[in-house]
Design a protein around this nucleic acid. Structure first.
Length: 649
RNA sequence: GCCGCAGUAGCUCAGUGGUAGAGCGCACCCUUGGUAAGGGUGAGGUCGGGAGUUCAAUCCUCCCCUGCGGCACCA
């Protein structure tokens, strides 16, 4: 037998016979390691203990102490255990696939009857039973034909299809958990008893298309979460409760920010409090854009289909466009209009007015563009996905040579905005040329390089998504991370070589000839609606002072203080603050509680002492201690605090 | 759009084949109380919409609408 050399993490190497398994290597080291081992890493690949090692390699044996590997295996084995439990209870159910996902796994089943919440409890019980059986996990590689025949005989058509999808050069690997069998690339644990029986939970049932294709059958998906310990599971469930508490739909109601109703699904009714946040954000953006050299414009809501046909949107997105009908009586000619689903074609119309010179470029046209898209019912989700929304949209008309400079300026602007909104980090993704595209390779080279260079001028890390660019140009997507670690894609920067062509935009170059400009589509917030939703969730409703809809409530402790409360409130309002007086016949405890629940950042309480001294007692949201401050001082301090971040000295 | 679940007072939710209830909120009264709910009284509902079954439907059946969790989609 040939000998191979395995190098351990500590740098030591040992010689073994080729074909030795990782389990045997572990056993060679110590019996306790053999028992504790869960998997190995062999030449950077996560390796099943049972797999033979054929050649020299770097090897590391994993135990439950290695979180990454442990969690992957636990979740992956649980997927199998769950599928097995389901088939033990309902032998007719057909199995499909069950991958590991963040925090857990899912498994898709084909079953006539959907699973009920009660079924989940039963499955969970069965799973624990299986874990306690401590069945060994075994694996083998089969001939393709044998696997197909096996699955055909067992009436598992999805598995037959999966076998067929495995590339010719890949092995068909089978796994057994006890008697139960599944097609799987592995790796897995040594036996089911290695899975913690008290650190997982089945979460929900949902429909999911076979292979994610809406033309294929709808399967029943069961989601589970799993951790190494019971405590981690508990912590995660607590986290979910916390996330639910910051749900913007709930806070939107509690803080009286907005509502939705049946007559206008997916359209926001902004209440005074919510609209205050919106306006504050919009004012802020307007200042930032103006300073960054943008000119603000405004374009029609209702536009003849001819323009959408010319832009190409009619062909592709007609299903999702709101079409207007005019009462015949009042129309001389039948015209079909659409509510604009996007602003770019209208912006080109403004560019096209008059003759543009290269001296006009780059021309940056910004619009808080109100758009309507008929989104699928199932897609709507609070402010995050709506049918009527306003983009912080702008189009930069420029030359190919100006792309890089404009991209760099944009990223700078975007960084400022995210920072001011309270997001400390964001990721950038560069999507490059797809197979089907327009424009010469030369132009693509230039554009992709320009975007890349622009990113590198501000930071050194970004992700590349090859082939995921739009057919009309490469793009950047910007994802920010919120306070509880969730990612939201907000900003975008897209180079477009097509629309100027389709809508015949041109400028006169230095050479006196006509040229096509490049159009850069860009947004920072995405839509105001969604961004405000993200802000609400990020801050759990406790918005920074400059954005808080109600910044200060001045509350009387005794009714004798009411006149001074009114005076203080007027002073604050005169200073530009959003202040309200609360002189209701209620105790101060009650008022403090109510305004705390309402997320008012500052409460100023006024009783007899304050009236006598012309002071206020200041209490900040979430803090217990109070502070007595002279009136003049509090007005000055709060006014300074209310200054938006871009205006602060 | 697809799968599943849900829709009862402003909110959160209970309930029944014989047209409804709680807590909070709201209004009024008492209370002037010092930092997260003082007390009393009262008003408030075509039980999401339509059709059907039934002597009788908020409850059972069907269709539609909206919402929720996923999936698909997101110019």
């Amino acid at each position: 037998m040939a000998q191979i050399s395995l190098t351990f993490p500590d740098g030591n190497a040992r010689s073994y016979e080729a074909g030795i398994t990782a389990a045997e290597v572990a056993a060679d080291i110590s019996t306790s390691l053999a028992k504790k081992a869960i998997s190995a890493t062999v030449n950077d690949r996560h390796w099943d203990l049972q797999w033979p090692i054929a050649e020299d390699a770097a090897i590391a044996i994993h135990t439950m102490k290695d979180d990454d590997q442990a969690l992957e295996l636990i979740r992956h084995d649980l997927a199998h255990i769950m599928a097995r439990a389901v088939q033990e209870i309902w032998p007719d159910v057909k199995v499909t696939i069950g991958p590991v996902i963040e925090k857990g796994w899912y498994y898709d089943f084909d079953r006539d009857e959907p699973f009920t919440p009660e079924d989940l409890g039963e499955i969970e019980k069965k799973m624990k039973e299986i874990i306690n059986r401590r069945d060994p996990v075994t694996t083998d590689v089969w001939e393709r034909e044998r696997a197909v025949k096996y699955y055909e005989a067992n009436n598992e058509p999805y598995k037959v299809e999966l076998v067929g999808m495995i590339p010719e050069d890949q092995p068909i690997r089978m796994y057994w958990h006890g008697h139960w069998q599944d097609l799987c690339r592995g790796p897995h644990l040594q036996h089911t008893g290695q899975v913690p029986a008290d650190a997982f939970k089945l979460m929900k049932v949902a429909g999911a298309y076979w292979r994610g294709d809406s033309d294929r059958p709808m399967l029943q998906r069961i989601y589970g979460v799993a951790f190494k310990t019971r405590q981690e599971l508990k912590d995660y469930l607590t986290f979910l409760e916390e996330a639910e508490k910051r749900d913007h739909r709930r806070l939107g109601r509690e803080m009286e920010l907005f509502h939705f109703q049946e007559e206008a699904p997916g359209m926001v009714f902004w209440h005074p409090n919510g609209w205050t946040i919106y306006r504050e954000m919009q004012d802020y953006m307007r200042r930032k854009l103006t300073r960054a050299g943008y000119r603000e414009i405004n374009t029609p809501q209702v536009v003849d289909r001819k323009l959408w046909e010319a832009s190409g949107h009619w062909d592709k997105y007609r299903e999702n466009m709101y079409i207007t009908e005019i009462d015949e009586e009042h129309a001389n000619e039948k015209r079909i209009n659409a509510l604009k689903p996007m602003n770019c074609p209208c912006h080109v119309q403004i560019f096209n007015q008059g003759i543009k010179s290269y001296r006009d470029l780059p021309l940056r046209l910004a619009e808080f563009g109100s758009c309507h898209r008929y989104e699928a019912h199932g897609a709507l989700h609070g402010l995050m996905r709506v049918r009527g929304f306003t983009q912080d949209d702008a189009h930069i008309f420029c030359t190919e040579d100006q792309i890089e400079e404009e991209c760099g300026r944009f990223i700078q602007l975007l960084s400022d905005v995210y920072r001011d909104a309270g997001f400390s980090s964001f990721d950038i993704k560069l999507s490059t040329r797809p197979e089907v595209r327009i424009g010469s390779d030369e132009v693509w080279d230039k554009a992709e390089k320009a975007l890349e260079k622009a990113i590198l001028s501000v930071r050194n890390d970004y992700e590349v998504d090859p082939g995921e660019g739009a057919f009309y140009g490469p793009k950047l997507d910007f994802k920010l991370t919120d306070a509880i670690g969730r990612e939201w894609q907000c900003g975008t920067f897209q180079a477009d070589f097509m629309l100027p062509e389709r809508l015949d935009a041109s400028y006169i170059g230095m050479d006196g000839e006509k040229h096509r400009p490049v159009m850069l589509h860009r947004a920072i917030l995405g839509s105001f609606e969604r961004f405000i939703g993200i802000l609400i969730e990020n801050y759990a409703g406790k918005l920074p002072f400059w954005l808080a809809p109600r910044q200060v409530v001045v509350a009387s402790i005794v009714s004798d203080a009411d006149p001074f409360v009114e005076e203080v409130t007027e002073r604050l309002i005169a200073a530009g603050l959003r202040a309200e007086a609360d002189t209701r016949n209620e105790k101060i405890n009650y008022k403090v509680r109510e305004h705390s629940v309402g997320k008012v950042p500052v409460i100023l309480a006024i009783g007899q002492k304050e009236v006598a001294d012309r002071t206020v007692t200041l209490r900040r949201l979430g803090e217990k201690q109070t502070r007595v401050v002279p009136l003049d001082e509090v007005v000055a301090a709060l006014t300074a605090e209310a200054t938006p971040p871009d205006m602060a000295a």
